[in-house]
Design a protein around this nucleic acid. Structure first.
Length: 483
DNA sequence: TGAAATGTTGGGGCG
DNA sequence: ACGCCCCAACATTTC
């Protein structure tokens, strides 16, 4: 009898069992299958993860281990440098094949390539798949063979690329189970979960882990918030956003699965949700677009995409940055967003744009500082989307919002949180102010403040900058770098 | 996936 | 009836 030897599946940003091409291919080989996750140290897999993301990772790995166990696949955990760990583990389990789903950050691509060469030298069958994006960067090209730097034509070309976007299903159960006791490390030893102090209470209260949690979040959105998504997604107090980004981050659900579920939901409504689907799908393509940028411009997380911003007179102001990050700017919509982020590890997209605009324009603080804060505090912090979207807001990015598009935090609040439900939820100390002035507490009369129990500068900050003066200052700074 | 300044239009009050 | 002013509503331009 000709028996099939073990396969190794290297998990990275694809911590799920369904729609996982690498895992399915390994199981379909026959023979025993082992999963491996490497917590990469030394930056060989790319950027070291932020604290909130590590919290998410812990939960996602626990859920993955459980899901894999049901299909007879053990999960091995290791810390170290992938180019060392992969050959080591492959040797220990006597793997004949090693499969994974691709990554797209240039540093991770380089790391994967090294691993691939080493394994292939040991006669191991190494193969990779697309488990993350709807279209991979090289699948979308301009007519002249270049890569897109503008979203709209990118999206159009991606949609027209004819890529099969249907998710593959759940894999079958591995016929032969083989465990490798003592080979891996213990997840708890990695200490990804904060103990003292335990700052993760708000995260736990808002987010689950694993494929089931992801699917349930998505189906809640599709049944309750999908209708009206294209407009309602701008209003942070409404439940018209999916909240699926934390699950997309480590691939607890795939973009293909997300799109597919939305497509089904839209069809069920007999076409009523066409535009909602279109806009929702567009957001998924923004994610692909960001990876397209990062793939081609590896400096994206650290360097201005537009070189002229290298001369921008950013201010260094630790005290302003501190007020921003802690939600103490005195602008309620900004403070609400920053507090939601701190408490839940997530922020509504409209508010992300407002707070990012405020940091880079009103405070004129370098987008990289804001990007780092988001990287550390967001549980959906994404290697491509985070820097790409920060550069978009700052005006330094590809296809960016023009720098002079400066959000007015007062009118944005009035327009998108008119009933102030969002601001009251996150800035309770001003909750009793009437809707008309709650987005600009400093215009309240002495009587109104007293009635609301507010002492500006004491119970709630005075605005740290004057909107109009800050706007003028930012515009003239922008003038100074125009060619 | 802005905001503010500036320009234009048209209705209504009024002498 | 007419010109004039005011101003809201809307459109355009500029940052």
């Amino acid at each position: 009898m000709n028996s099939v030897g073990p396969s190794l599946v290297w998990f990275r940003n694809d911590l799920r069992v369904s729609d996982n091409p690498a895992l399915s291919a390994a199981i379909d080989r026959g023979g025993p299958v082992a999963g491996l996750y490497v917590l990469e140290l030394g930056g060989d897999g790319g950027r070291p993860l932020g604290l909130a993301a590590l919290w998410k990772l812990h939960g996602a790995l626990e859920a993955l281990r459980e899901a894999l166990d049901k299909i007879n696949v053990p999960l091995i955990l290791k810390r170290g440098v992938s180019a060392k760990i992969l050959p080591e583990v492959a040797g220990q389990i006597e793997a004949e094949a090693c499969f994974w789903n691709r990554r797209y950050e240039p540093s991770a691509i380089a790391a994967d390539k090294r691993v691939m060469e080493i394994l292939k030298a040991s006669k191991i069958d190494v193969r990779s798949w697309n488990g993350s994006l709807m279209v991979e960067p090289w699948q979308v090209k301009t007519k002249s063979g270049g890569w897109f730097k503008v979203f709209t034509p990118f999206c159009k070309a991606a949609r027209a690329a004819g890529v099969d976007l249907s998710p593959i299903g759940v894999p079958s159960v591995a016929l032969e189970r083989r465990d490798f006791p003592g080979l891996g490390e213990v997840l708890e030893d990695w200490r990804l979960i904060p103990k003292s102090p335990d700052w993760a209470g708000g995260l736990r209260a808002n987010w689950g882990h694993g494929e089931e949690a992801a699917r349930s979040r998505l189906s809640d959105f599709l049944s309750d918030g999908f209708r009206g998504y294209s407009e309602g997604r701008n209003f942070p107090a409404k439940s018209n956003v999916s909240g699926i980004s934390p699950y997309l981050r480590f691939g607890e659900i795939s973009a293909r699965q997300t799109r597919h579920a939305a497509l089904i939901a839209a069809d069920r409504a007999n076409g009523y949700l066409d535009s909602d689907f279109e806009v929702f799908e567009r957001e998924l393509y923004w994610r692909d677009f960001s990876y397209n940028l990062l793939f081609h411009a590896d400096e994206l997380p650290t360097s201005n995409f537009q070189a002229k911003f290298d001369n921008f007179p950013w201010r260094s102001d630790p005290s302003d940055f501190d007020a921003w990050s802690k939600g103490n700017t005195g602008y309620p919509i900004v403070d609400a967003g920053m507090r939601q982020l701190w408490e839940t590890g997530w922020m509504h997209n409209r508010v992300r744009m407002i707070v990012a605009s405020f940091l880079t324009k009103h405070l004129m603080i370098d987008w990289r500082q804001g990007e780092s804060w988001f990287w550390d505090t967001l549980i959906d912090a994404d290697a491509a989307s985070n820097p790409s979207n920060w550069q978009w807001v700052a005006g330094s990015g590809a296809d960016a919002a023009p720098y002079f598009r400066i959000f007015n935090p007062i009118s944005q609040g009035e327009k998108f949180d008119g009933s102030a439900e969002y601001v009251r939820r996150w800035v309770p100390e001003i909750a009793t102010l009437p809707n008309k002035i709650i987005h600009a507490p400093w215009v309240a009369s002495a009587t109104q403040l007293e009635e609301a129990g507010i002492q500006l500068g004491n119970t709630y900050p005075k605005p740290i900058v004057d909107h109009s003066a800050a706007r003028t200052r930012a515009l003239s700074a922008y003038q100074s770098i125009r060619s």
